[in-house]
Amino acid sequence: MNKLIFGRYIPGNSFIHTMDPRAKLVASFYFIGIIFLANNWQTYAMLTIFTLFAIFLSKINIRFFIRGIKPLIWLILFTVALQMLFTQGGEVYFKWGIFTLTEFGIMNGLMIFCRFVLIIFMSTLLTLTTPPLDLSDAIEYLLRPLKVLRFPVHEVSLMLSIALRFVPTLMDETEKIMNAQRARGVDFGEGNLIQKMKAVVPLLIPLFVSSFNRAEDLATAMEARGYQGGDGRTKYRILHWHVKDTAVMLAFAALTAVLILLRS
């Protein structure tokens, strides 16, 4: 029984969902790049509005995005605190030993916080609206130029898609093996760290062995089905670039221009 939505993909039909995954991938990385252009409240406001609009277009509740922040919240607050307590400049509000709380400090702290949140929101938008397989297709396409450098693009892409295909299968198998070992008296959650690590052995070894067997069977089957490597192969799955994808690229270009104009 497969209850986890792998990669946290949430199915949907929104503007963002139906974009070409290549556009989404490029846009996400690009966004993370231009975010460093922002250095005042106007530029951050611009970026925030842009991001919130994208989230709105995805028709996914903002709760899911906020959930993406939770695992990193302590790291974020720590970094913000460092900024706030150690930056010099502007009016000093408070001083205690090595800690100084200044106007610049507060500003920087808030901007760093904003930066973290926006980066997390944008990458979460990517994984929430794009099935892992589409991302893999996009990566293969974008890596294609590397073929010139003899980089095994096709092989890497095939490995990635086969690995993704087997994730649910392996998860089911893990559950089955865990049940079988629990039925033999293994306690997976109990004991100190050493005991917990020992408990993992009767789970990992069978999984490894079965994976090797699978790999061998799969290779034999692929050979029987005529697989000889990437040369001469055609592709069944293709990606479709549409006008809206170009429009999104242009929107990012416009955003870049605005940021450059607004920054101080």
Binding site: I162, D217, R225, G226, Q228, R233, Y236, R237
Partner: peptide, 19 residues
């Protein structure tokens, strides 16, 4: 399971054709 290469049914059927 160990001969199913494609991520979906149609992808798997297409595998041999792609080859």
């Amino acid at each position: 399971d160990n001969q199913f290469v494609g991520s979906t049914v149609e992808d798997d059927v297409a595998f041999g054709l792609e080859n």
